[in-house]
Each structure stands twice: as structure tokens, then as C-alpha cells.
């Protein structure tokens, strides 16, 4: 276990160095959040019908989305992409380490460190000026932290799958472009899942993407009870387990037929 923890923490500390980039990113995210906020505000004013979540809850949801954008599995590890392109992925295979565990630990760091840096200024600014509310209760805070941890583990498993897909496509532009679109639309990032048509909600919630965004956000808003929180965490871990096993199987298959790009 130790080498993987070392990789995780080393990578984490490296990624924490990019503070200026994170600051610029937070600025972009704040601007984006403002646009979304005004759009949803206009929609809520256009209809008198009661809605499943209130405008102020939606606004908090939007800001959480902007703050936590980085935990979405929206990209592959740029270093690993480079290694696969140049062929130096062969060195990775030579290491006395488990390739999947190595990439998975890198993915966990990739999902957490930049998000941590970006989310702090967003929480401060949006919390002070733009209507991001505090967690609904102490229990909500605890549930949010737990489900966010689950979301990170699950998201890292999806990111690892994207990285592994590069072993087949080399240029890696297809799958790694398609999945982020799915993730963003079906996670609740564009529209909170409670606003989806009722018939589609169970379907969307059954997919792993909603577990990364919608589950922790609902915990934050206090709409998850005790038993719901517990079952949500079980679902997150179950999906993580399934995707990790799938990823390991893919790596084992790929390693057998891997053609290393020369040069």
C-alpha cells in the first residue's frame, strides 16, 4: 500500500503548486456561476408553479457545482497521455508496481488537489456575495464530507477508465471527449437532477455520474436523511468497486497486447 500512498501524496503536493492557475480558474468559475445564477433566477421568475427545489437551493447547488467542478472525471492524466503517446508507458509497465493502482492513485490526487485550491476562493466569494448558503445542518455537513469522499473515489475510477482507454486509441480524442459530455449533462452540473422530468430521475440517479455531483450536493442541502445518506454511500462504493474491477480487467488485457509506440 505504501508506494501508492507516497505517489498520491507526492502528486498531490506537486499539483498544489499551481496556485496562480487555480486562482485564474476560480475567477472563470465565478463568472460562469454568475451567468448560471441569472439564468436560473429568470426561469424561476417565469413560472408560478411550485418547484421541487427552491431558487435559493438551486443557487447553492450551482455554486457547489462551480466549486467542485474539478472532481468531475472530465479529463485524463496529461502526463500519462504523454507517456502513451511517446511510448514511455513501457517504463510504467517495468516498475514493480501494479499499473492500475499506480494510475488510480494519480487520479485521486488529480481530482482532489486542484479542486481544493479552486474551491476555497469560490466558497469565500460566492458565500459572501452571491447566495451560496452554509450546509443545512451539522449532519448535512458531515454527510456532504462523506459523500464527497465517495464521489472522489468513484470519479477517480472513471478517470482511470478514460486513461486506460488511451491504450487502445493512442490519439485518445474520441472516448475521452465523449465521456465528459455525458458526465456533465447527467451529473446535475448543467441542471440539478431534481429539475429533470420526474420519469427520468430514477434512471439518471442509477448511473454513476449523478453519484459524483448530485448526491453530495443534496447531502449539503440537507435533503438526504440518515438512511438515504447511508444507502447513497453504499451505492457510491458499489459503483467504485465495479468500475475498479472493470479497469483492472482492461489493464490486464491491454498489457498482454500492448504495442509500444517507438521513438
Amino acid at each position: 500500500m505504501t508506494p501508492y500512498v507516497a505517489i498520491l501524496s507526492g502528486r498531490f503536493r506537486t499539483l498544489l503548486q499551481y496556485r496562480a492557475a487555480a486562482f485564474a480558474g476560480a475567477g472563470t468559475q465565478l463568472f460562469w456561476g454568475l451567468i448560471r445564477m441569472m439564468i436560473f433566477d429568470a426561469f424561476y421568475r417565469s413560472s408560478a408553479a411550485p418547484q421541487p427545489i427552491s431558487l435559493s437551493q438551486t443557487i447553492t447547488y450551482i455554486w457547489l457545482g462551480q466549486a467542485m467542478l474539478g472532481i468531475l472525471p472530465w479529463n485524463v492524466d496529461p502526463d500519462v497521455r504523454g507517456m502513451i503517446r511517446t511510448g514511455s508507458v513501457a517504463y510504467e509497465l517495468l516498475r514493480p508496481l501494479d499499473l492500475y493502482a499506480l494510475w488510480y492513485s494519480r487520479a485521486v490526487a488529480q481530482r482532489t488537489a486542484p479542486t481544493l485550491l479552486r474551491s476555497i476562493p469560490i466558497f469565500i466569494v460566492a458565500g459572501t456575495f452571491f447566495g451560496l448558503r452554509a450546509p443545512a445542518s451539522l449532519f448535512a455537513l458531515a454527510a456532504w464530507i462523506l459523500t464527497t469522499a465517495g464521489a472522489i473515489l468513484l470519479s477517480a475510477a472513471i478517470s482511470s477508465l478514460l486513461t486506460i482507454s488511451l491504450l487502445w486509441t493512442v490519439s485518445g480524442e474520441g472516448v475521452t471527449r465523449l465521456v465528459p459530455g455525458l458526465v456533465i449533462a447527467l451529473s446535475g452540473m448543467i441542471v440539478p437532477i431534481q429539475l429533470f422530468p420526474e420519469w427520468s430521475q430514477p434512471l439518471v440517479r442509477a448511473l454513476p455520474f449523478a453519484q459524483v455531483v448530485d448526491t453530495p450536493f443534496r447531502a449539503y442541502l440537507g435533503t438526504l436523511g440518515r438512511s438515504e445518506t447511508a444507502s447513497a454511500i453504499v451505492v457510491q462504493l458499489a459503483w467504485t468497486g465495479v468500475l475498479v474491477l472493470f479497469g483492472r480487467w482492461l489493464v490486464a488485457r491491454a498489457a498482454r497486447r500492448l504495442v509500444v509506440q517507438g521513438g
Partner: peptide, 26 residues
């Protein structure tokens, strides 16, 4: 793959707008 991904990605984005209209009407 890229062309199709772009098409689908954008289609999903538009689906978000459709969902909002389904919910709020105008």
C-alpha cells in the same frame, strides 16, 4: 469519433435547455 463526440456533447447541452423549458414553461 471526435465529430460524433462534438455532436453528442452539444446535443446534451441543448437537452439541458429543453429540460428547463419542460420544467418552467417559458
Amino acid at each position: 469519433m471526435m465529430t460524433v463526440s462534438f455532436f453528442l456533447g452539444m446535443a446534451l447541452e441543448f437537452a439541458g435547455i429543453v429540460i428547463l423549458f419542460h420544467r418552467f414553461g417559458t
